[in-house]
Design a protein around this nucleic acid. Structure first.
Lengths: 188, 188
DNA sequence: TGCAAAGCGGAGGCAACCTCCGTATCTTGT
DNA sequence: ACAAGATACGGAGGTTGCCTCCGCTTTGCA
């Protein structure tokens, strides 16, 4: 009846960790579409092991970027402190942008995570949704955000922008577009 | 000195056309990442022929969606007629959205076109940029759009939104996001 | 009608995907 | 400390898609 989940074997845990580290490297180097055999090789592990731990590519992608994204999510309360909702959302989006710009592959990763089948979908996307939801709700309450604003729209818009090809000047352009979007969220 | 380009042979033209038709089908069915051998097969043509006509995938993608996109571009003057810039831009984005929603694969295609190396880049992207530029310029002139608005930002934002995974409710959500964006373009 | 030139096709080499199962490594109970 | 079962590993191999290369066909021109 209680929690019937045995802890995984020691070698399994080790390999899983090695795979995550290797994948982070390889994704940073060749993007999220990189060869999984390369990942396995660099982790010093057989492909079979990779596929056992992460049944699909998306599962690996998600696991690799999960920690970073959690940090973005966790920043919400701090940013909300002493700020009006809109200002907090602006600060948050700026921080999010910084993460995406810093961690190569994260833009693609976000898109990939959104794409994958709902039943396999990670826990990360809901947490992001929840983060935006909180920010938007505050803004609506204190009157700094339009009452008809929808958190899911805002998050998707951000992801759309983050996933644009990161050519030269990407970060500045993304910032401008985000500003446009946020301006659109202010009450008329 | 004059135009040294001979017209292509008849069979070449035939095959090119067959490839475009087949590719349109296959892309609509399996997305822009579909198998090119499948495209060749369905066109009743060898792969070699496909690669001779379209050296890279992006070239084929672009050719397939070019006509549709040209229609979007060509709508600009008509939409500008008797409308203020902002209104024309709204109407244009709505029309663009309609095209993307109707033609499966077009969202992906836009992204793919943006991605490909500049020197190989199609003539379509510049034409789209020019279209938005015209709309935005009018809007700035007649005071319906912020003076600091940048056409390239607007286009990229749109493409970002169009490329989001087209799940249920995509069109409505894309419309809301675009509205947000356009609201952000109105003078403060 | 004949002959370059232009174009065709698909075999073949390569890379990545993913599965499967014989073998190795851990854990637990004694 | 050891044995036995459970758990996990590895990588060969079947499959598919990419792209190139070159002997053969078709076309257009004289």
């Amino acid at each position: 009846m209680s929690s019937e989940v045995k802890p995984p074997r020691a070698d399994a845990r080790r390999n899983r960790e090695a795979l995550l580290v290797a994948a982070a490297d390889v994704f940073a180097e060749h993007g999220v579409g990189a060869s999984l055999e390369e990942v396995a090789r660099r982790a010093g592990v057989g492909v079979g092991t990779l596929y056992r731990h992460f049944e699909q590519r998306d599962a690996l992608v998600e696991a690799v970027y999960r920690r970073e994204l959690e940090r973005v999510v966790d920043a919400v309360p701090e940013l909300l402190d002493g700020r009006v909702g809109m200002a907090a959302l602006r600060a948050w989006s700026e921080r999010f942008l910084g993460y995406v710009a810093a961690k190569r592959g994260m833009g693609e990763a976000l898109r990939a995570i959104m794409d994958c089948a709902p039943e396999l979908r990670s826990t990360v996307l809901p947490r992001l949704e929840q983060a935006v939801e909180e920010l938007v709700a505050h803004g609506i309450e204190d009157g700094s955000i339009r009452t008809d604003a929808r958190a899911d729209d805002v998050l998707r818009a951000m992801i759309g922008v983050f996933h644009l090809p990161q050519a030269d000047g990407w970060e500045a352009q993304a910032r401008r577009i985000l500003d446009l979007l946020l301006d659109g969220l202010e009450p008329r």
